[in-house]
Design a protein around this nucleic acid. Structure first.
Lengths: 243, 243
DNA sequence: AGTAACTGTGTCTGCCGGACACAATAATGT
DNA sequence: ACATTATTGTGTCCGGCAGACACAGTTACT
């Protein structure tokens, strides 16, 4: 698994030359996932797009799980190079770059959940995210937690605006909207604040990414300011804002 | 679908009495998902735990998608009743309640992604979350975005600490940790900040929930303060902290 | 030339979701 | 009381899925 993700060469010896490469398999899988969703990616379907049979794929990949892992790390790609700048701006564009990646390959939201082996590209994203925070006075753990909370937010915003093909209910987007509106009106008494909030927010959709991002960055700013504001040699406790 | 989620009675007429109920089916499914993961929930497996055959389930549920939706809303349950209090405290405990729910039924993290029809319990959670924010001066859209960002954070923290049974790679948790440490040491040159951050954060695991939560609440606090600080009748623009 | 390692193929199994025809059941109309 | 009719549960069947395995062909090393 780890070897696959990190592209260790199998060091060819004897036997026939492989007809394809792991990269080609992954590329075929990515193309299918992009076009038809992750559920459309089956070993058979991938093999159909390559000059081999289904079972030949198992010479390159132990199982489907691993194939998807390789696909995921590859599709994620390297983060774009960005010039240095103030941490807030850096993290802000980093978040947007991440968001772009997830909208380019929405199935990544399905394939990269839970504990899993991390590939080189995913680690590079983390490294890049940490880069902006090195001079902020945050501890290592805090830096990790910081990019984690940003990642979480970006992921879920991207998720929210995505309808995954595959486990569709047969309902169109329209149908869902309508039945939701219907429920909300018939059950309005049970959800007064929800109804009110949705009424006043109608029309101003898709602000979620920036709103949450700004709140998170504001929160980080507060913590960072309290850290760097401490002159050398003077010990103070940061303001405890919990509760 | 909507009817199922909202428990509309099918209004019995003629024909044999149903041997089971939708609630029983959902309960069986939840039990399986809790014990063996969402992937272990198949129509056959659910029917095995009930006095009917697999195909009988389709008299109660149009398909597996809908079954999982019903299971999810039911497993989510109603949010615990909490006394009123300051918005920050309210939202804080709300987030922890949500976290508890996700750790009780980790498969909810898999089954409740993307756009989907929302059930009564899920809406009640939203309503409850909004309840704490009504007197904060935030607009409806901002309130929704606020609870969304909190939810996102809670979800991804819960996700992070969960290993989903089902698409396991055969690796134990230990193996994964070890191979990760190995990679990180051999490739340390490529990920200097990551290595540094992980070294200094070793031991202080599982702080992610509180850390991110406090940052988010701090950020919200800043926005809310800027709103309520505006005396009646005086128009001011909130400080633009973007970038 | 012989052997050993490696690749691709075809066949097979067990699982999945779901379509469909059919018999049993229970309320309704006469 | 009896026929009608809607509804329930069952058994069978289909296509698709991941993967195990034996086997034949291919290549490099001895």
């Amino acid at each position: 698994m780890t070897e696959l993700l990190w592209g260790k060469e199998p060091a060819r010896t004897r036997g026939p030359k492989p007809a394809i490469t792991l990269a080609e398999i992954a590329a075929a899988g990515i193309a299918i996932a992009d076009a038809e969703g992750l559920d459309a990616v089956s070993m058979q379907r991938v093999a159909d797009d390559l000059p081999v049979t289904k079972m030949a794929l198992y010479r390159y990949v132990p199982g489907k799980t691993e194939l998807v892992a390789v696909m995921s790390d590859l599709a994620m790609g390297k983060p774009p190079e960005r010039p240095d700048g103030p941490w807030r701006e850096t993290l802000h564009t980093w978040a947007h770059d991440l968001y772009d990646g997830f909208t380019r390959h929405p199935w990544l939201l399905q394939s990269t959940i839970g504990r899993r082996p991390l590939g080189p590209n995913e680690l590079t994203w983390m490294e890049q995210g940490l880069a902006g925070l090195t001079d902020t006075g945050l501890t290592g753990g805090e830096q990790l937690d910081a990019i984690l909370v940003v990642t979480s937010h970006v992921r879920n915003i991207a998720q929210q605006s995505t309808t995954f093909p595959g486990h569709s209910t047969g309902l169109t987007e329209e149908d869902m909207q309508r039945s939701f509106a219907e429920i909300l009106s018939t059950e309005a008494a049970r959800f007064p604040r929800l109804v009110a909030a949705m009424r006043t927010s109608a029309g101003s959709e898709n602000q979620g990414l920036e709103f949450g991002l700004q709140r998170i960055l504001d929160g980080l700013d507060l913590l960072i300011s309290s850290r760097v504001a401490v002159p050398d040699g003077i010990e103070t406790l940061p303001v405890d804002r919990r509760r």
